[in-house]
Amino acid sequence: MSQSPQLLEPRIIAAKSGSWRPKPKISNVTLRWGINAAALVYLVLLYFSVDINWSRVAQGMDRGVAFMGSFLTPDFVSRGGEIAIGLRESLTMTFAATVIGILLAIPVGLGAARNIAPTPVYFFCRAIIALSRTFQEIIIAILFVAMFGFGPLAGVVTLAFATIGFMAKLLAEDIEDAQRDPMEAVRATGASWLQWINYAVQPQVMPRLIGLSLYRLDINFRESAVIGIVGAGGIGATLNTSINRYDYDTSAAVLLVIIGIVLMSEYLSGYVRKWTA
């Protein structure tokens, strides 16, 4: 109130006379228009580069409707045996791969945390994480199938490998965010490195580690439904076959089973998280 009028900004003077617009989110005018123009150019390029065969789409609509409808009449029975075998294989692969993956991810995660690992170890572990995270599970599965032959072993190795990258990265970030004071305090008692990890680091990251493990279990199950497509075992093979046969009722049954299990695991992990919090 004490400011003299000539010190007031133009926006304040304008507001006094009743005209006001919100400030633009990006204050730099060139940048703002640059972004708008880039978006426009992208849309134009998109329009010319995406070629869609609409007549083929129209042809397929009957099948789309048939597929939707089959969710109302899923057929669990006629290929029940195949579904059961695929499901059992998927579940065993999921569990084994998650356990192996997490056990391997813990040392990698410790090594990839900048605040506790020496520099060469840090870079080595970060390289493992980057390699594991860049490629889709399916690509890794193709390579492992080529090495180990068809079957669930290739699937387990794939999922374990993907789990390492996922868990180690998040674990390392969690350790890097951990409170420094307790870590210093425990080190000051003269504890050895392992004791230090056990007393200062582990209690800080354990609840989240458990939560992430359950989440990864869930992800691995979903992924196990995919890698079967390239021959790495699991329910994916059953699903792929049924879709290629246009046997949508069986496909719908498999999908419903997957959805059901994911839903169940979500409820379960909610409970476990409450116990361990």
């Binding site: 109130m1 007031l8 900004e9 304040i12 507001a15 006094k16 006379s17 009743g18 006001w20």
Partner: peptide, 16 residues
């Protein structure tokens, strides 16, 4: 409305 808002902000000392 904007004029009124401005007056109120002036009244509570926050117009700048």
């Amino acid at each position: 409305d904007i004029q009124q808002a401005f007056e109120l902000l002036e009244r509570v000392g926050l117009e700048t």
